[in-house]
Nucleic acid binder design. Structure first.
Lengths: 128, 128
DNA sequence: CTTGACTCCGTACTATGGTACGGAACCTAT
DNA sequence: ATAGGTTCCGTACCATAGTACGGAGTCAAG
């Protein structure tokens, strides 16, 4: 397949060139293959990898967890991958519960404030 | 009221001394009142303010939004407070939806992986 | 009156995820 | 062959929310 320039790879991944380079520095993407500069050093693997990173990120994995997942992928270590997924799901559940609670509290405050009785605004007073 | 040392204020707020000083630098808490050093410069107002900050944080407000809320409190600007609460609720809703989606996707992958058929682990392959 | 605890203050460092800059090399078209 | 565009690379910078450190001053107890 026709090799890509870094700017083309970035575009296909929906990120900026600097972000691609940042991922390379983090070891998430391979460094340019051709020895020299200004060439077309990237292929379909790199595009796939970049998209993998972005999708894993939306699942809430941090970049260093993603680095681990990539290693797991190489080693085909399914039990460890399941562990990570379970841990991530638990963290997600916790975060969701936390945000849901905050949302409910805030919604109640906003409603009370809108009702507009006298006295201080409940939103402002609530945190007192 | 008996004035507090910074370490006592920090303890009452459930944070470290350095965090109190960080909030002071950000203008979220007032700087020590007594001119000199090593004194008991803080009072009940500071404790209340510190707890306000921590509670607002759990509602998802950033420190600079909290700085704004504190100003609003001083100005008793209820409409603006309602606006901020609404915006925060919307952001919370968006975040919750996003995490819920990620959770569902990940849970499905984990289940498929546990079912353990042949082929590559779905968790590892999914982001491909 | 010295020691230890505590304070204030500035500065620097951490982690996370990027974003930007400047120099040198290199490829392509004119 | 020279200009323009692009690359590589290192380094520095951004926001967010802290955390840590070293120096100097002060206060109370021994």
């Amino acid at each position: 397949m026709n090799p890509l320039r870094i700017s083309e790879l970035a575009k296909k991944g929906g990120v900026g060139v600097e972000t691609v380079r940042f991922y390379q520095r983090k070891g998430l993407l391979d460094a340019p293959q051709g020895s020299a500069t200004a060439g077309r050093h990237y292929g379909a693997d790199d595009v796939r990898r970049l998209r993998y990173i972005r999708k894993a990120q939306t699942a809430g994995f941090t970049l260093s967890e993603i680095a681990e997942l990539i290693d797991l992928d190489r080693a085909d270590d399914r039990p460890r991958a399941r562990d990570m997924a379970r841990a991530r799901i638990a963290a997600l559940d916790e975060k969701i519960a936390e945000l849901t609670e905050a949302r409910a509290a805030l919604a109640k405050l906003a409603k009370d404030c809108a009702k507009g009785g006298a006295g201080p605004c409940p939103i402002l007073a609530a945190f007192d």
